[in-house]
Amino acid sequence: MALIRLQGVTKEYRKRKVLENVNLTIEEGDIFGVIGQSGSGKTTLLNLIAGFIEPTDGQVIYFPEGSTKEKDLHRHFSQIKKHIGYTPQHNSLYPKLTVQENLWHFGRLYKIDKQTLSTNIRNLLNFTHLIDYRNFLAEQLSGGMQKRLDLSCSLVHKPRLLILDEPTADLDPILQREIAHLLQEVNKQGVTIIIASHHLESIENICNKVAIVHQGKVHTHGLLEDVRRPYLRDHFTIRVRSTEQKQLLIEKLKVLPIHKIIDKGHSLVIYPSNVESIMSNLIRIIKEENLYLHDLDLRRPSLHEIFEKIATSTESEGQVK
């Protein structure tokens, strides 16, 4: 079920198009990643969804819970905003308030009754492992703790949609993983998440859908697999222990729909007609012939590779033009 839909959204600043004709849908339960280089327009896209800025052209549509009646997000923002949680790139909290005070403050502003809020806060503190630090001033917390507190502040009112701008920026890899795990846990509780980041690896790890923004345009978007598909490689490389095993494998593979096999000495480069269908047969052969698989390079293209390809192709298009 759709939660947010962008229809032909264009944003201009001083007659300069920052974002052009964006059409995408974010469904309920998604962890939607927006990736792109700095200055690509991903923050603008996020700000449009968050309601900070209005599109120059087009529409951002919000689908209310339990209702089929769609609403223009910017026109009805005052009603919709309470369903949105936003965690900006920097921490958005009061450094001079304690962990609990920060949560209590924002919770009360959302008009949550004291008892419910108290329960929410306790759950959040347990969830984010901040329970022991509840009486610490926010400024006394470490970077990772502050990020967790910030996330808690965004979740204290139980939003439908959580928007995060560079949630893992400035964090070390361990903290990045910790936050990623936390977001997945949040998502499991039914919160739709939109993340803008240029840390493609973390996006790849936690998002089920992505949109790749480059030079103000959304080049591709959708399920991660669907995004990858056009960029999947047409070959894979395999290396077995001995030459005998290699020859045996060549013999066995010849009966399968394979365009060509190149023997590179230690390894074989195989060009099948369909990588996915050949893979099950390959595993079966290895199992039946009891081959010792030394290495199988069946890498799907990473988001980074996809992104690089998009960037390269856009640049070459630009040069041709």
């Binding site: 958005s92 909290l93 924002f106 008009k111």
Partner: peptide, 13 residues
């Protein structure tokens, strides 16, 4: 200038 300024944008106040 408070870091929390942005968050107040979303609160129903």
């Amino acid at each position: 200038h408070s870091p929390a300024f942005l968050r107040n944008f979303f609160v129903p106040v």
